[in-house]
């Protein structure tokens, strides 16, 4: 198994605050990796650096062996990293169908000019994309609401739509930012199945930021643990469960939370 994503001593500072400090981590091809840690540990910041929203102050990120420094978010998506957001960020006024269709845009051969000439090639491509969009929606049981605006969907459906949209860009690595947030236990179970299904069906690696230990421990092959912007542990779920540093970090933060 070869390395897909590699973080080497990645650090980011905002003014005087060091949000992430010298973090190294890897995700291999096809692997399902968890990224956990207490609130404010810097998990989402790591996501934002990987996807090009922030540029690391120090250190190096490489995807498929190529450094991603200086790339804009859309260029990183072109290379095969796609993501969801902690606070769902769909295109609220667009229909469910269009939310997914627009993400297929990366596979387009046509552009503005073809939209105006509207020749046979343009039509073939549009029909092809429509079929692929519908197929994706069908896999996730959302084709029944394809014409609804995304904002009218239930919370759980919005979460799923965001994942479908990310899949439509054709990623090799999918970043999921707290997909289980706000879900009840039954929905979480459903989600765990869904994530594993996606990984097998679409043959991709998944990096998962999650608060819910059951979800992470239940599906991840490997887990990285962050605390205060530093990586304090890495290992299989079993190793992490018995790691004293991790236990301290979680109990400590829980104790602080109570006071």
């Amino acid at each position: 198994m070869s390395t897909l994503l590699q973080l080497d001593n990645v650090t980011i500072r905002f003014g005087g605050l060091t949000a992430v400090s010298s973090v190294s981590a890897t995700v291999n091809e096809g692997e399902l990796v968890g990224l956990i840690g207490p609130n404010g540990a810097g998990k989402t910041t790591v996501f934002n650096m990987v996807t090009g929203v922030y540029q690391p102050t120090e250190g190096r990120i490489a995807f498929g062996g190529q450094p991603t420094a200086g790339l804009k978010p859309f260029e990183i998506t072109e290379r095969g990293i796609s993501r969801t957001f902690q606070n769902i960020r769909l295109f609220p006024s667009l229909s469910v169908f269009d939310n997914v269709r627009v993400a297929f845009h990366l596979h387009l051969k046509h552009d503005s000019v073809h939209s105006l000439t509207r020749g046979p090639k343009f039509h073939r491509e549009e029909v092809d994309l429509r079929d692929r969009t519908l197929e994706l929606l069908r896999i996730f049981n959302l084709e029944r609401v394809q014409d609804e605006p995304a904002k009218s969907l239930s919370y759980g459906d919005q979460r799923r739509l965001e994942i479908i949209r990310a899949l439509a860009t054709g990623p090799k690595l999918l970043l999921l930012d707290e997909p289980a947030a706000g879900m009840n236990p039954a929905e979480k179970l459903e989600l765990m199945k869904l994530i594993q299904f996606i990984r097998e069906k679409f043959q991709l690696a998944i990096l998962l930021v999650e608060h819910d230990m059951k979800v992470v421990m239940g599906i991840c092959q490997r887990i990285h643990v962050l605390e205060y912007g530093r990586k304090i542990a890495e290992g299989t779920p079993a190793e992490i469960r018995s790691n004293p540093a991790v236990i301290a970090a979680y109990l400590g933060s829980a104790a602080e939370g109570k006071s």
Partner: peptide, 29 residues
């Protein structure tokens, strides 16, 4: 109308709806 009514064109609406998400979906906003 032509610009907007295509897969490419939905990008304009996506940019209007949420620029950060549009960029994350590979759209050159």
């Amino acid at each position: 109308w032509g610009l907007l009514n295509s897969t490419y064109g939905r990008g304009f609406l996506a940019v209007a709806d949420d620029e950060v998400a549009a960029e994350a979906m590979g759209l050159n906003t």
